[in-house]
Each structure stands twice: as C-alpha cells, then as structure tokens.
Design a protein around this nucleic acid. Structure first.
Lengths: 216, 216, 216, 216
DNA sequence: GATGAATGAGACTTCATTCAT
DNA sequence: CATGAATGAAGTCTCATTCAT
C-alpha cells in the first residue's frame, strides 16, 4: 500500500509538473487536458483518476507551489533575528525563488490570475498569506521601535506588488541583467519605503528621514 | 454620412462599454460575444460589423482606456512644476481613476493579463508607458538634486506594481475604507522609497523647499 | 426611360461580369455578395436592387452566357451545309469559345455544377440544349446516309462530355500546348466515333469503317 | 486493442458512408457535420475524433472510393490479354461500378468537383490516374499495330469525359433505360473513335486476331 | 436609386468529462 | 489502474438579406 501511495504521489507530481509547463505555455483555458496528460506521459483517463477535474489541477498546483514557497520563506525568516532583517529575508527568498522558477511564477502571477474567479481568489489568498508574514515582521519592527509606526498592512501589500511587477518583468522579457542588481536596488527601495536602512552591505546612501538603524 | 458615422461611433462605444462589463464579470474567455452584443443592445453580427473579432474588442478597449488615462495623467503632470510633485500627481491620478473605474481596472489588471500573449503584451506595453512617464519625472528629480541618484526605471516599475496591488485589492473586495486613507499611506511609502519627503498635504502646492522631516 | 433602362442593363452586365470573376475565383458559396458588389463598383444594396438574390445572379449568368454561346453555335451551323460539317462546326465553336473564355467555362463546368440542385439542373438543361443541336445534325446525317445509323442522342452527349473534359483540362492547368493541336486530335476522334471522316483538311488517316465521306 | 481498432475502423466506414449519402443529397457545403454524425449514428464529437475536419472527410471518401475502383479496374484489365480489350474492359468496369454506386458517382463527379480547389484537384488527380491506365493500353495497342497511331493521352481523357457525361446523366435522372443498351452504344462509339473494331459480344473473349472490318 | 449598418440563422470546431474495455 | 473512443455543450465567426437614411 505504501508503495502504491508513493507511486500515486509520484504520478500526481508528474501531472502537476506537466500542468505547470503546459499552462505557462498556453494559458489555463488553452491548456488541453490531453496535452497535460501527454506531457505527464499518461492518458486523459489517468489524469482524471488523480484529479477530479481540470480546475482541481491548477488549484492543487497553486497550493503545492505555495506550500513549498511558504516553507522557504519561513526558513529564511527563522534564520534572522531582527524583524526588519526577517522581512528583508522573506523578500529575498520570494524574489529569488520566483526568478528561479519562472514557469511557476508565470502560472501564479499571470495565468491563474486571469483564469477565473476561483483561481483569482486562491491566488489572492496565497498572496495575503505571504503579505501577512511580512506584515507580522513589520509590526514587530514597529513594536521594537526599529521603524516608525505605519500602515504595515498596506506596506506589506505594496511590497508584494512591487516585487511581483519586478519579477514578472524579469521573467517575461527574454533575459536582461542579472537579478542581483535588480535585487539590490529593490531592497533599497522597499526598506527605505518603511523608513529602514539597508541591513548589512551597503548603507552607503543615507536614507533621508530614517533615524534608526535596524542592523543585523 | 455624418449622421451614420456618429451612429457608428456611438455603437462602438456601446460595444466597448458592454465588453468591459461582461469581461469584468466573466473573464475574457467566458465572455461570449453573444452576451456582449446583448448588453450592447445589438446583435452578434452588429458586433462583428464593428470589430473584426473578439480579440480586437479587448485590444480596442485596452487602447481606448489607456488613451483616456494617459490624457489625465499628462494633465496632472502639467499642473505641477516640481518633478517629485509631478510624479506624485501622476500616481494620484492613476490611483483615483483606477479606483473610480473599478470595472476597467479589473479588466486591465486581471482579465487582460491572463487572457493570452497578445493581451498581456499590450498591457505590459501600456504599463511601460505610464512607468516611463513616472521615470521621466524621477530622472528630472535626480538631475535637480531633489533626490539622490537611484535606479529610476526600477523605482517607476515598483511604484506601478505597488499601486496595482493596492488598487486591485481595493477594487476586488466589496468595498472597504475610503480610498483617501490608503492613498495617503501609499504616497508616504512610495515617496520615502525614493528618498523624497512627503510634499505638503495638497499635492497642488509645489513641494519646493519642503523641510518637514518625518524623523523622530 | 430608355436611357434609364440602358443604364440598368449596363449595371446588370457589370454585376454579371463581376460575379463570373468572383465565382470563378472563389466558388459560388465563397463568393460573397459584398465582393461581387465591390468588383462591380457598386454596393450590396445596389446588387440587391438589380437581382432578387445571390442565386438569381448565377442563374442569370448561366442563362446569359448560354444565350451568347447559342447564338455563336447557330451561326456556325448556318454557315455550313452538310450535317456532319455542321456538327463539326458546332463542336469547333464550343471548343474555341470555352477556351477563349476560361472564366466562364470554369463557372459553367465546375462551380455551377457543384453549387446546388437548382444550378446543376440549369447547367444540365443548357448542356442538353447544345447536345440537342448536335444531335439534330447527326440525325440529319443519318437520314442523308452520310453516316450509319447510331444512337445519336448518346453520341451527342458523349461528344459534349469529351469536349468538356478536354476543355476543362486546358482551362484548369496553367497553360499547355496551343489549343489547335488538341482541337485537331479531338475532331478526328469524335468524327471517327460516329463513323465519319474528317470533313476537309486532313483526311490523311483513313477512318476504318467509314463508308461515306461527308465532304464539305 | 484489436477490438478497439476494429470498432474504430467500423466507425470510420460508417461516417464515410454517411458522408457520401449526405453530401450526395445536400452538396458538400450544405452537408452539415451534424447531419453526417446523425446519419452515422454517432455525435459531432465522434466525427471529429475520427477525422480532423469536414474537408478531410470528403478527401478520405474520395481516396477510399478511388482505391476500391482502382482495384476493380486493375482486375478487369488483368483478366484480358489484348490492349484494346483491356481498355474496353476498364471502361466497362468504370461504367458499371459508377452506375451501380450512383451516390458515390454523384459525389465524385458533381459535388467534389465544385466543392473547392483541394477537392477539384484531388478529383482531377484521380481521373488522371484512370485515364493513365487507359492510355497505357492504347499505347500498347498502337505499338502492337492494333490501332493506328493517335494522341492517346487525349483519347483517354476524351473517353473519360464521354463516360462521365453518360453515367452522370444515367445517375442523375430518376432512372431510364437499362444501362446495357447505353453501354453497348458507348462502347461502339469509343472504340470507333480510336479506329478499333468492336470486339466480340462478350468482352471476356479476347479480341485477339479480330478480323471483322466493317469497312469497305 | 444607392448605401451600408444591422440582423440572425447556422456552420465548423474544441474540449472537459465519462465510461466500457 | 489505465486507456482512449465517444459525447455534447458552447463558442467564434460568416454572410445573405433587409431597410432606414
């Protein structure tokens, strides 16, 4: 039984991977179940054995991806001590992971968003989840006095929005500069936006109006 | 002839408005041309007389909307003198217009993005256009010494992303707090992000020589 | 009034010519009334003023063309005295006229035939008409003793069929040998088929089994 | 698997038969896939599972029919020894088979010809194939000295044309005289046209050494 | 008389889903 | 468990025809 379950798990993974690939390429509506099945090296019936329908595939893909990403973000947060550094770390992980998995990022930020209510709602919920993780750190930072009080919910959402737009561009256009440069500039921008300095590396350019350093 | 042309213009507008409504409600793929026609009080054939296909309708809607918005943003920019105030004004207009026309904002930022390559490309191009307008002001601000040098292209894009995510949320969920509060917080956030000070309460008043630091 | 009638006649001719061109190019079903109107330098409404519908246009074209061709054939027959020579002359005129007006030949033998019952019926009727003209001469030739008795109705039909297939090929494929050579061979073939010799020119090859010469 | 394949084969045959029936009745353009499906006792989707499109159905029908007919003609030719008798046998088989399968003959000679370029081209190619088979025999007959030299390509084509026109009429009008009489007359006509003598009554008996000249 | 916007029936095609083998 | 033939709803688009201007 365990062997069978493992096999089933494997099959599901294969279908999910295939779905991500096909959906990124064709969009959700034009992603035929047939094509997903083919790319997963199974048949239409096989897909329907593992998932109740096409909708469930994308939803599962979304949840699966989100869970993986959440784990990474949580680990990154746990690795830091200071709230601002933690928020910063979360940001970095999100950026790098999305950049590394362009296909998934595309599915998340482009295809699922426009695929219909249920998908949009799920994406929104997942974004909220990550925004909440960031907001939590920002709240702590305010509590600690590391940054001035501000609308942390809005800030978290704005960060996510900025991150999305930057990553999407990086993922969408053929290939531009290395992500590193972009990352550095974006960090500077976002940390400044909440009145914090760059933790670590380059606080060379003083952030006007920022008074306290949230050093690592 | 002029009468006929006027009628045709009117009909096109009606179709475009209907399309926006139906697409916002159902999404692009599920927006049946039949339903658009019904909502535009015409027939399927009527729609196809005015537009070569369904795709062209959304594209036209995108362009039409973008043109209107561009006009507003240009006017808002022209009404200010200082680059930072101009960027701020552009932001304000974008925010308020999108909030006011939630349907169009939804079509733009949600439905069109996931409707397929051509639409995504068009949306991207239009966003770039607005980002360029903002970047131009930021570049001038740097030149003037109003703000420190920074990656203005990235900043403009990040601003757009932050704006989008905030407005989209405001538009998507039933209706929450007045937009004013959100707007104020967002301005603060974004201006800070480029190291600028918050211009006086009313953006109509030039920021020139603004002294107020939000420091401790 | 006469001026108006003449004008109307001209318009109709123009439409008929345009219809022939478009139908030959696209086939009857794919020949849009719009395109016929455009090619006739008028509008859709204009076409419908002169013809009750699309069907009537092709029918009129068929009749118009047949009437012209009939005139030519009758003249050619009248120019000869001997029945066999007359049949031969009719054949020659049909062949040359069809070859000269490839577009009309195509409409007649290809597009109209497959355009639906009413058209096929009309084409059949017209073919019968020409076959009857030929048969009449063959009957006379039999009466005169110029050729042996035979199934003249069948012979006339077979001649038409042979003629059609040869001309159609000549019209359909880009461009082959001059029609003259083909014509000579076909005459030989068809006259031999009824046991007659080539009237005139080249009776060089004796037609085995022919008893009487139907010399001019 | 073999069961499934057999079923699929059967279904395809059923669809092809239904298509022939509907197309003969309505013409290619007016033959709705819906109606073909209904007559084949399947669904629209079923038809599209077996054929990529409506066009492919007619093309397949054409090829299928041509292959069957080719087999018959080849067999008939192989059953004779003398070239002229072989050509005659080919003719006989074509005539009788077309007469027996009026529906297919109609589809071939009427509906497909006017259904558009691709169909017309295919029909032409198939006709050429049969004409070539006949021409080959005529060439051999010339070589053997059985008939005088002549334009065998033209003769073969003319034969096909004559045959077509006769059979089509026989098929199109409700039903007239028995085909036998027509067949006999046509044979006489066509054999005479190439200067050959009518082989003995039964085409089964080889013409070898036929001496009877109906000449002077 | 002419124009062309508008209508609406109808065609082809796609594809998620089901189920017998 | 897997396969793939079959279903049928739904969608886009075309075009002959009408009629107000």
């Amino acid at each position: 039984m365990t062997v069978q379950q493992a096999r089933a798990r494997t099959r599901q993974q294969r279908i999910l991977r295939a779905a991500a690939s096909v959906i990124a390429r064709r969009g959700y509506r034009d992603a035929a179940v047939d094509e997903i099945a083919r790319e997963a090296a199974t048949s239409k019936g096989g897909v329907y054995f593992h998932f109740p329908g096409k909708e469930a595939i994308l939803l599962a893909l979304l949840d699966h991806t989100a869970a993986l990403l959440r784990g990474k973000v949580e680990a990154a947060i746990a690795a830091e001590r200071e709230p601002v550094a933690r928020a910063d770390a979360a940001l970095t992980v999100l950026l790098q992971t999305m950049a590394r998995h362009g296909t998934l990022a595309r599915v998340f930020a482009v295809e699922a968003v426009g695929a219909g209510r249920p998908f949009h709602a799920r994406v929104t919920a997942i974004q909220d989840e990550f925004a909440a993780m960031i907001q939590e750190q920002l709240d702590l930072a305010v509590e600690d006095g590391a940054i001035e009080p501000l609308d942390t919910a809005l800030a978290a959402r704005a960060w996510m929005g900025a991150l999305y737009s930057v990553v999407l561009r990086w993922v969408t256009v053929p290939q531009r500069a290395p992500l590193e440069a972009t990352h550095a500039s974006l960090r500077l921008l976002l940390l400044r936006s909440i009145g914090a300095e760059l933790p670590g590396a380059a606080p060379a350019i003083p952030v006007r109006g920022a008074r306290r350093s949230s050093g690592t």
